[in-house]
């Protein structure tokens, strides 16, 4: 298998993972106009909850039906979304909606800091491992190389998640209501749309996607303090490359970054850590608002 193909496959896998961890961020921004710094924390909580839940599952006879652990992972992400989504949005964020964008970023930064320590208080600082779901599906042979089948599952989940978000937004009645709110909050309110509910549900969806990213990642890594920070930085870069609030943008941005990183890993390992920012800077030089910018109205 030649280098190009290796880079493409690795890039695709990494890009798919990036898409899953960033699509929630862009969705939350698109609907609520909030750049959620706590996204990384929610991802980490998703990973921790999954680690605990899957651990419990296998400790209680899950071995008889190991594939059930995938359902447990999704359930863990849902649990995080249902508990934390309304708590954060209704309990905290809505009090700041009339404030500046940057102020809300700072509020989510505060939430991020709080979540960091709350996680340490709940799960401690020793790493957790739940590798069973990762090895469950075996390996795939591609030429001289082996890939873990789970990696392709990640690609599948990314495609399903992306299509699902797109379908709900563009093909369902509820999705059209959300688009109306995105387009004109005040007008939607006067037309009888329950904007508060749209906000809460959209935020929950964003939390779910973040937690799902964590759930999928938990079996691949050692779940430990600090995983949230890397993710939020990566997700920001992807979302800014794609254009804030754009789902398509996040997909293409994730693919861009995924392939660039894979190329760097194979050809220029020293640059791996900041290749993502190079891609971002390059995109921004030519497209200052990202690949798929929101349009802005005339001011005067």
């Amino acid at each position: 298998m030649d280098l190009l193909a290796v880079i493409l496959v690795d890039g695709l896998i990494y890009g798919a993972w990036l898409f899953i961890v960033s699509v929630g961020l862009t969705l939350t921004f698109g609907v609520l106009n909030i750049l959620n710094m706590a996204h990384g924390g929610l991802y980490a909580i998703g990973a921790y909850t999954t680690a605990t839940a899957v651990g419990i599952y296998f400790a209680n006879g899950g071995d008889a039906f190991p594939l059930g652990s995938y359902a447990v992972m999704v359930f863990a992400a849902l649990l995080v979304a249902v508990v934390l989504g309304p708590l954060l949005e209704r309990g905290l964020l809505r009090h700041f909606y009339d404030r500046d964008h940057v102020v809300i970023v700072l509020v989510t930064y505060g939430i991020f800091l709080i979540l960091e320590d709350v996680m340490k208080l709940i799960w401690g600082v020793t790493p957790l491992f739940v590798s069973e779901p990762y090895s469950l599906l075996g390996n795939v042979e591609m030429g001289p190389l082996f890939y873990v089948t789970y990696d392709f599952l990640v690609i599948g989940v990314a495609i399903v998640a992306g299509l699902a978000v797109w379908y709900v937004l563009n093909r369902t009645r509820q999705g059209k209501v959300v688009l109306a709110v995105i387009h004109d909050r005040e007008m939607s309110r006067t037309m009888g749309v329950n904007v508060n509910k749209v906000f809460m549900v959209s935020f929950m969806a964003g939390v779910f996607l973040a937690a799902l990213g964590g759930a999928l990642t938990a079996p691949m890594i050692s779940v430990s303090p600090g995983i949230s920070v890397n993710v939020i930085i990566l997700a920001f870069a992807v979302v800014i490359i794609g254009g804030l609030g754009s789902i398509e943008g996040a997909a293409i941005g994730a693919l861009f970054v995924g392939i660039a990183r894979a190329a760097s890993v194979h050809m220029l390992p020293a640059a791996e850590l900041f290749i993502i920012y190079l891609v971002m800077a390059a995109v921004l030089v030519f497209r200052p608002e990202g690949l798929f910018p929101k349009t802005e109205a005339r001011k005067i």
Binding site: G110, F112, L113, I114, E116, D117, K120
Partner: peptide, 20 residues
């Protein structure tokens, strides 16, 4: 020792809310 960020985060939210 393990709640420095928690303290900081809560403090930050209070400041933004009460002392804009």
């Amino acid at each position: 020792p393990n709640t420095w960020q928690l303290v900081l985060g809560v403090f930050l939210l209070i400041v933004i809310l009460l002392l804009p």
